[in-house]
Amino acid sequence: MKPLFKKFLNITKKVIIGFVLLSVLLVLLMRWVDPFGSMLMVERKITHWNVTQQRTWKDWDQISNNIKIAVIAAEDQNFSNHWGFDFKAINRALQYNQNSKKIRGASTITQQVAKNIFLWPSRSWVRKGFESWFTLWIELTWPKQRILEVYLNSVEWDEGVFGVEAASRHYFNVSASQLTPTQASLLAAILPNPRKWSPVNPNSNIQRKAEWIRTQMNNLGGKYYLDKLK
């Protein structure tokens, strides 16, 4: 049994080393190379193979500042300060989930990038472990602007609609560079469930959330907040 156990340990060690090297290499590569797609897009294509996917990559300077600050206001207001994990938000979510039937998440924008680009969509501790690994390396090797750029180009905004350019065209028939504060806040407001809600036919909850987001956009400082991401 000893030779077999030793062989198993050697194989396991090689697999772990191989994963570490490959994952770090992929993260480093995407610091400069734009992702062709995301694992979420792959999963959606498998489950909805007949839906045509829309996605057009736009670089940082081709995206409206309004949508940049809107998603930060809605999703991760501590984005410029944390290192991938917002522990205060996690603690608040844990306390909320103990007393509510609805589950509130506390994922940062960086964690969502790690999940969408590199991992399969699921709710498991194993997936969360891999997500934390990729989140750490993304924060260590990418500037904040790059993290937000990849997020905006990979997030899902409707069935088959991925990235802010496709969403802008799909809902408002404008480019991502032309989004107004109101349009941006409505897009950001539907992100918790983009395949259920619509920014062009918002219900009262989405309208209230969009108004709150616009207030937060101003409170954060708008463009001045974005300057901190350089």
Rank of each mutant, 00 (worst) to 15 (best):
W137Q: 01
Q98L: 15
E131S: 03
Q95T: 08
K128S: 05
G129I: 14
I103L: 14
K102S: 14
L119R: 05
F134E: 01
S100Q: 14
F134G: 00
F118Q: 10
Q111F: 09
Q98S: 14
Q95M: 09
I138Q: 04
T108Y: 11
N97Q: 07
N97M: 06
R127W: 04
T108P: 06
T110C: 08
I117Q: 04
Q98G: 08
Q111N: 12
L140T: 01
K101W: 01
K128I: 04
A93V: 01
S132H: 03
E131V: 09
N97H: 11
L140N: 01
G105N: 12
W120P: 06
F134S: 00
N99C: 03
V113Q: 11
E131I: 11
K101M: 06
F118G: 00
V126C: 01
W120Q: 07
L140H: 02
W120V: 06
G105L: 07
N99E: 14
A114E: 06
S122M: 02
Q98D: 15
Q98N: 14
S124L: 02
I109D: 06
K102L: 15
Q111T: 05
L119F: 08
W137V: 00
R127V: 12
R127T: 13
N91I: 05
I109M: 10
S132M: 09
F118A: 02
W137Y: 09
T108L: 10
P121L: 01
S107C: 08
L94W: 12
S107I: 04
S107D: 12
W133I: 11
L136V: 01
S100F: 02
N99S: 12
L140Q: 10
K102G: 07
A114I: 01
F130V: 08
W120A: 07
L94N: 13
T108D: 09
F130C: 10
L136M: 08
W137N: 04
S107K: 10
K102F: 15
F134K: 00
F134R: 02
I138C: 00
R92W: 03
V126Q: 11
Q98Y: 14
F130Y: 14
E139W: 02
R92C: 01
Q98F: 15
Q112P: 15
S122N: 14
P121E: 09
